[in-house]
Design a protein around this nucleic acid. Sequence first.
DNA 1: CAGTGGTCTAGACCACAAG
DNA 2: TTGTGGTCTAGACCACTGG
Lengths: 233, 233
Amino acid sequence: MTTAQLNTWQDVQSEVLGRIHSRYWKPGDLIPNEADLASEFGCARATVNRALRAVAEAGLLDRKRKAGTRVATNPVRKATLSIPIIRQEIEESNRAYSYGLISSRTAIPPVGVRAQMQLGETTKALYVAALHLADGRPYVSEDRWINIDAVPDILSVDLSLENANEWLVRNAPFTRGDISFSAIQADAKIAEILAARTDDALFVIDRTTWNGNTTITAVRMIFHAGYHMQTTV
Amino acid sequence: MTTAQLNTWQDVQSEVLGRIHSRYWKPGDLIPNEADLASEFGCARATVNRALRAVAEAGLLDRKRKAGTRVATNPVRKATLSIPIIRQEIEESNRAYSYGLISSRTAIPPVGVRAQMQLGETTKALYVAALHLADGRPYVSEDRWINIDAVPDILSVDLSLENANEWLVRNAPFTRGDISFSAIQADAKIAEILAARTDDALFVIDRTTWNGNTTITAVRMIFHAGYHMQTTV
DNA sequence: CAGTGGTCTAGACCACAAG
DNA sequence: TTGTGGTCTAGACCACTGG
């Protein structure tokens, strides 16, 4: 295969992707090393490296020192989904965002939440229930526990005016988060909140965020019936 | 702020993350330019660039030519979830994987699928229904339409022996895919297949994949009741 | 041990966009 | 117009790991 000058790493990347898609390099194949590709493409090795690294991050190549670079046999497609800030998600679809605080109080969390947040049996946390609306219609309900020790300032915030998530995002940076997606059947209570029918299937996101080893908050977001979360690979 | 020599881009990255988390650089702040940081850290500008680019990709910085680099005000957390190959997902949890073909035939797809796949009104496609099991118990049902024009070889594959997804992954590379996650209520038919109860809430992934402008396949995966998809940010 | 990818450097030029 | 990030280069050394 002869190749013209490929000057940018994007050029190299698309050449590489082309060779994979055309099956000129097949799954499992060892491809030439960076130095060889660089001289073939007429560019510097660093440029080839940048391109191959990008393709490897996308999951289409496996790279190992000494062993070389192979076309992935099980191209594990990585979908990057940006965890939406609800307000943005709603406003980007040209609907009016609004927010209602349902309840806010300190209490000892139930055992499940306590375990998830690694809190003691007698440690109180701030419980916040709220509803986000799009064009006045229920969009997602939010059930949140906040670790007061980690974020004491939260107690002085008026959560009927400012949405807890947005306050936390701005004032309580986190280093790590676990996210879980699932489906639940609506019970009478959540059905009423979301204007759904009992037994409707609802999409749920559970998230716990940490700053180092300290839990910041655990939240369950239950979306209105019919919600889809979408992304692209 | 004085800083010792930071020699690797990872060093620079953690210093930068530290300054963001400690709020030494606050959301919205303009941070020094690459050249200044390079001299402060005692490394080359390319090293700083590599570090800042990584942090920006994680969503914590916004970078613009001429305008400089700012700490993101709405740190859009990007969760990368690797779309699982079902067999791997099951085997990694130390359960036995098995697979059953329910049906395989060519037919004209229903209008929704036809639109999604951009097929003509009279174009036939291959329909495959299958069930994946973990330790003999239903794990996920798969309902798939395959564009025969794009992948004619699929017709000569014995899909009772080889799982359609794995065959496609190996033999029909794709350039692009749309994915959607949602929740549905089990009807009698799917409830029976998945050993669930009617009205159970089930987690669903719909995926359409393309090679250039050609649709390869559209698939709906309906997971057993109680399934969680998890990831980390 | 030796080949491969991983990274750093110093310098250079370019593309974009704010003023 | 000009400051900023984006990228390329050529060369160098290092870290990991397969054989």
